[in-house]
Design a protein around this nucleic acid. Structure first.
Lengths: 218, 218
DNA sequence: GTCTATAGTAGGATAGAC
DNA sequence: GTCTATCCTACTATAGAC
């Protein structure tokens, strides 16, 4: 992430080709999604042969899983630091709503969201690294949903699901080009993230209205 | 049907290979997304050589665009017929909420949603067929959003965007496997669609609350 | 640990026979 | 209009040299 010397040049695997390959994989994913990722291209970016990665990862999926783990940790970190900077950080509604912006922006910029994190092929590897990263992320979100919901745990889980779908949908529509009839706007990402936050506010408010403590039925 | 027991033989291009290829393309997309589509595989399914499709479509993208147009028309039709069967068809909130269920179910089953319909590479072809189909779909949704919103046209457009993102997100999470830690549930599609409708209700209610006519000033 | 070379797979697209 | 045959491209993965 940090290095930005040449446009995409080479040979900075001074000592850690494994890490360099994960970085390259994340770059590829951010540029063209999981479909744009290939072991060969990642190797090319780093400046090694197509065979070299197989010394560090048994197969394509292993590298992909490592990249997914890294992305998950990055996302969790972004959510943790961003929640405190909401318009009204003391309001649990604003705190949860802010995560919709963080998530959609992250996915739009990196193309590494829940669909990558929860890819069955990756989760089924029972990779401890990915499992731990996923759990930390879900725990963080659940905490925020619990605070924002006026119902019980059941209502909070439902709210989290609704909220997650909303943020994921914003990212998906933007990435799919549904918001940009013309060429993609430079600052469109921020605008989309803002819309996601605004939508999340409506959703949370509506959810609280329909799941008020006095009216916990249904 | 003459031909013997291949698992999926067809050779029903009696007179309309073009239509048969579009059908096959839609099948491929529904099975593995756009990534699962290839001209070669579509031809194989229909029972013709890999070269035959190029008599009817100049290139891969043309066939894909034709499939996207067909899917768009199907989706518009499903929305039109389903809106009347909402729990309370007279309630504009329920009518709009119902479309979240229709959309998410459709996308989950066919993998042909807004990200396919609005794929820039397809929209930039200026294909009249796809353009007309897209416009009809958007017009239908906008009508419903206008009826459900208590604000002006601006609020209705915002509501539609929020609503669309929500439905799209539900479909995306389900397709990405985020809802199914284990194997995908058989009737999971209906459950997910129901959740999408429920979420849409919260969203619409919240939106109306935040954009009431008396309080139109955000 | 990395290289070159290679086997195998799959798809997009064209040429020319029938 | 469809076929066979072909060329090109790109990727995964392995083998053996250094």
């Amino acid at each position: 992430m940090g290095e930005q010397g040449g446009a995409e040049r080479r040979a900075y695997h001074h000592g850690d080709l494994r890490a360099a390959l994960i970085d390259a994989a994340l770059d590829l994913i951010s540029e063209a999604g999981v479909a744009g990722f290939s072991v060969a291209e990642a190797a090319r970016r780093v400046g090694v042969s197509a065979a070299a990665p197989y010394r560090h990862f048994p197969d394509r999926e292993s590298l992909l899983a490592a990249a997914a783990s890294a992305a998950t940790r990055q996302l969790t970190h972004k959510i943790r630091t961003a929640v405190g900077t909401a318009p009204d950080p003391g309001d649990p509604v604003e705190r949860l709503a802010a995560t919709a912006g963080v998530y959609s922006r992250f996915v739009i910029e990196r193309r590494a969201g829940f669909d990558l994190i929860f890819t069955p092929a990756l989760q089924d590897r029972h990779d401890g690294e990915l499992r731990d990263a996923t759990r930390a992320l879900v725990a963080e979100l659940l905490r925020l949903a619990m605070a924002a919901s006026t119902g019980g745990i059941h209502a909070a889980l439902e709210l989290l699901e609704h909220h997650t779908a909303l943020a994921h949908g914003y990212a998906g529509l933007q990435l799919g080009g549904a918001f940009t009839p013309g060429p993609p706007h430079p600052q469109g990402h921020d605008a989309v993230a803002d819309h996601a936050v605004s939508a999340a506010r409506s959703l949370i408010v509506g959810h609280r209205l329909l799941h008020a403590p006095a009216d916990s039925g249904r």
